[in-house]
Design a protein around this nucleic acid. Structure first.
Length: 185
DNA sequence: CTTTGGATCGTCT
DNA sequence: GACGATCCAAAGG
């Protein structure tokens, strides 16, 4: 995950103030900020700072624990669930990545991948993750956080971005689902 | 293994 | 009108 620090952070969508796109980030914490990028991808954040301050955390990766068949469908299309081990007949797909062996770490190992796996798009922008009323909730399953977590610079920021090298990215050391470099550098 | 380019369009300048 | 909090596959070494 990566922290984006609103008006204090040149890399944040909220750096230059409120717009139609980033409005959710200026709202109350505990909501989902989903944005569209590169003409084809969605990425999801959890709003963290108080209303009006636009701090959020980008979800760069997740560990798929259940619902792997549904995630495979979201990622690779109808029929892909058959590739999940234990689900039955293997289909013969057109795309190369569908001919490769199924790997759970291909489902959520990236900010746009996890949105695809979870079916999150612009309709999910603003979801209340605390109430879960829209069908997506943020819960504590009791798993302890890594001690210590790995820390490093964020991914994909433009050269010349003032906050480019700030160590605001955290991940679980050694986890196969982590997207981007898995070593601190 | 690393590098490169294409896809594709909403958003903000 | 330029570019992006990306992903994938093909080409190159």
């Amino acid at each position: 995950m990566e922290a984006y620090r609103g008006s204090l952070d040149a890399a944040s969508h909220a750096f230059r103030g409120r717009t139609r796109r980033n409005a959710t980030m200026f709202g109350p914490p505990g909501h989902l900020y989903v944005y569209f990028t590169y003409g084809m991808h969605f990425c999801a954040n959890v709003v963290c700072w108080p209303e009006g301050e636009a701090g959020a955390v980008l979800l760069r990766a997740l560990a798929p624990l259940s619902g792997l068949e549904e995630m495979a469908e979201g990622r690779f299309g109808v029929g892909a669930a058959a590739r999940v081990p234990g689900s039955g007949q293997v289909v013969l797909p057109a795309r190369k990545r569908e001919t490769a062996p199924f790997r759970p770490q291909d489902l959520c190992s990236g900010p746009a991948k996890l949105c695809q796996a979870f079916g999150l798009d612009r309709a999910a922008d603003g979801y209340d993750l605390i109430s879960g009323h829209e069908g997506v909730a943020l819960l504590d399953d009791g798993t302890a956080p890594p001690a210590p977590p790995a820390v490093g610079a964020r991914i994909g920021l433009a050269a010349g971005c003032a906050t480019r090298d700030e160590p605001w990215r955290w991940w679980i050391p050694g986890d196969l689902n982590v997207s981007g470099p898995r070593t601190t550098r």
